[in-house]
Computed example of a mutant assay.
Amino acid sequence: MTRHRPYPSDLSDARWELLEPALSAWRADRRGKGLDIGRPPRHDLRRIMDAILYVDRTGIPWRYLPHDFAPWETVYGYFAAWQKDGVFTQLSGLLRHLVREAEGRNAEPTACVIDAQSVKTSANVPVVGQGIDAGKKIAGRKRHLGVDTLGLLLAVWVTAASVSDNAGGIHLLSHIAAANPRVTKAWADSGYRTKVIDHGARLGIDVEVVQRDPGTKGFKVIPRRWVVERTFGWLMHHRRLARDYETKPHRSEAIIHIAMIDLISKRLTRESTPNWRDT
């Protein structure tokens, strides 16, 4: 059903063309296995994705979805199923390939940048899933990110904030090496020390620590590391990521993939959405 006044977060026709094949293939596969949601399907996949993007962009609780979307239980059911079946990971990977090719790059990256971001959590996040980042004095969770040299997501791992950067770096490099075997170079900050460098060497990835000049005062763009810092900035335009609201860490990872899908699809179609600073 077409709404008379669409939300700014809704998919355009051009963006839907990018996502539709993967989502339709997922539905066909589910129906083929007798696992379809609704017989026959009662909800339009585009409207479901619009609802998920609305939550990701605005940060509202699932139960607060506007009534012109499908019931929130249905939308969340699709979100959980797509996360479990790896649909969001697949979509972000496919879109990343398209962006790289559109910019004259090889579809498969050969280098990456890794970093971590600690964020506070909401009251519904179990205490056992949280921790304290002693360095940044933040109690909550930590987002470990690996991106290519364009800042596009390669890997994400959400943990308690108490998990060290070394542990996160080892996990990211293992995931990146398995999914992107052409990657042979990685840049990181000084939080990734000997263990990450040694692990990278075993995987055939040269990990280079890029340090900030100790004599520099104030803000200074740090070579290579600025790429992943910019990615964190992109993600924070999605209010659902301003704090970690997800009960389970793998749901948090899905929310990050959805934000990247939103960003990359707009990059491909040359669209933009005003953020709250523009209003």
Rank of each mutant, 00 (worst) to 15 (best):
V158L: 06
R182L: 07
D206M: 08
L172A: 01
I261T: 06
Q211E: 15
V158S: 11
G129A: 03
I114K: 02
T231Q: 08
I37A: 15
R193N: 14
N166M: 05
P66V: 11
K266A: 15
D13A: 15
T279V: 15
R30Y: 11
P109N: 02
P274M: 12
V158Q: 10
W276K: 14
Y7N: 13
R143F: 02
D56E: 10
K220T: 08
P71H: 07
A167P: 12
E229K: 09
L94F: 06
G77M: 11
R141K: 12
A242N: 14
A254L: 02
A139K: 08
I114Y: 05
V128T: 12
H144Y: 02
I132P: 07
L173R: 04
V183R: 00
Y76R: 10
K120V: 15
A178H: 11
A155V: 12
K220E: 10
G59F: 09
W226Y: 10
I197D: 01
H199I: 01
L19H: 09
E271Y: 01
R239G: 04
V147T: 11
L11M: 09
H171V: 12
K248F: 15
I48T: 05
K220F: 12
L95K: 04
G169H: 06
L53M: 13
A22Y: 03
R240S: 10
I132W: 10
F79K: 04
A123N: 14
N180D: 07
L172E: 02
A188T: 07
I256E: 03
L153T: 03
R193H: 07
D10R: 03
A116I: 00
D206A: 15
R230N: 14
P274G: 03
K220P: 00
T74P: 03
A134K: 12
H238F: 15
F79P: 05
V113R: 05
W187G: 00
R31C: 08
N275F: 10
A25K: 08
W16S: 03
H4D: 14
Y54V: 07
V113S: 01
M236L: 09
Y76C: 10
S24N: 06
L23S: 08
R15T: 05
H67G: 09
K136L: 13
V99P: 04
S174A: 06
S265E: 03
T273H: 10
P40R: 07
K185A: 10
H171T: 07
G233H: 11
T184I: 03
T231V: 11
L172F: 01
G191M: 09
R182I: 08
R224V: 06
P40A: 02
T247Q: 13
F232V: 06
V87M: 10
M49G: 01
I138P: 09
A139I: 04
P126G: 13
D13I: 14
G168W: 05
Q211M: 13
P8Q: 11
T194Q: 13
S252V: 04
I258R: 05
R63T: 13
D262A: 13
G218R: 02
D244V: 03
V147K: 00
S272L: 08
L65A: 12
L145T: 12
V183Q: 02
Q83P: 06
I264R: 14
